[in-house]
């Protein structure tokens, strides 16, 4: 399981979990489920174009995810129209399908990009993954207080002198980078699970924001390592374990909290 040619996969997966744990915490806190769902979709045609033109995937992913951020910010400015947004996302997916079919690697690339293919990671993917896997956590930590305060109430952050527009844009940017990094590993459809399952569970379990952030990252790491180990052991796809374990984590956390709430707790006085 830790043979050299798989080691790259483990390293990249670990970095993916780090970035997703940090970004996912604020996805849950800022209730940006939609963005976490939309940005991987927006990144998908970028990866497909990279396959078509023979460029390293990460560049196509990052470029398309950044375009996605621009699209989201533009949609946010006007009144959001659900139908238009949904159609734009579906059109991006269809564009990705076109690129893949023109590349001649339609069949296997569709599966890899939608559901992930962690052990296809090569040594050339390590450097950009390290860069993003370090940059996203550091940036989230540096922006921790404004991100937190504007999640609670944007006007409170504005009164204190924070520029909420910039904070929003920063968050979407970090989310896009994390999504671009995670997409080849978990697939476009399961980035959401990796980001929100562990973070959602952590937010349900702990009251302190810093402790919850730490737990979110820890659970994301545990999730992706378990998914990879199980995938290696069974030969089943890692995406299946990612989606299933994320749901199990979140539901278990909810049930635990409900059970605890049912008993009177002394800390409530």
């Amino acid at each position: 399981m830790f043979v050299p040619y798989l080691l790259d996969g483990w390293i990249v997966a670990t970095l993916v979990a780090l970035a997703s744990g940090f970004a996912g915490f604020f996805v849950v806190l800022r209730r940006e489920s939609f963005a976490a769902h939309a940005l991987p979709m927006a990144a998908f045609p970028g990866a497909a174009a990279a396959v078509l033109f023979g460029v390293a995937q990460i560049y196509g992913l990052v470029a398309a995810a950044l375009l996605g951020v621009g699209l989201l910010l533009w949609l946010k400015r006007g009144q959001r129209n659900d139908a238009a947004t949904a159609l734009a996302l579906v059109a991006l997916l269809a564009l990705g399908a076109l690129f893949l079919s023109l590349s001649g690697r339609y069949a296997d690339a569709v599966y890899a990009l939608l559901f992930g293919q962690v052990f296809a990671v090569g040594p050339g993917d390590i450097a950009p993954a390290v860069a993003l896997g370090v940059l996203v956590p550091l940036a989230v930590l540096a922006g921790f207080r404004p991100l937190l305060l504007s999640a609670l109430a944007p006007e409170l952050a504005s009164v204190r002198g924070a520029n909420c527009g910039w904070v929003d844009a920063l968050f979407l940017l970090l989310l896009a980078l994390a999504a671009a990094l995670a997409l080849p590993v978990t697939g476009a459809l399961l980035v959401f699970s990796l980001m929100t399952g562990p973070a959602g569970a952590a937010c349900v379990l702990l009251r302190s924001p810093k402790a919850a952030l730490a737990l979110s990252v820890g659970l994301a790491l545990a999730l992706i390592w378990s998914a990879l180990a199980l995938s290696y052991a069974t030969g089943w796809p890692a995406g299946f374990f990612t989606g299933a374990l994320a749901a199990v984590l979140y539901l278990a956390a909810r049930m635990w909290r409900r059970a605890r709430r049912a008993r009177p707790s002394p800390g409530w006085a």
Partner: peptide
Amino acid sequence: ILLGAGLGLTA
């Protein structure tokens, strides 16, 4: 998150 589990099953 539940839909994610469903997509995992699809995978």
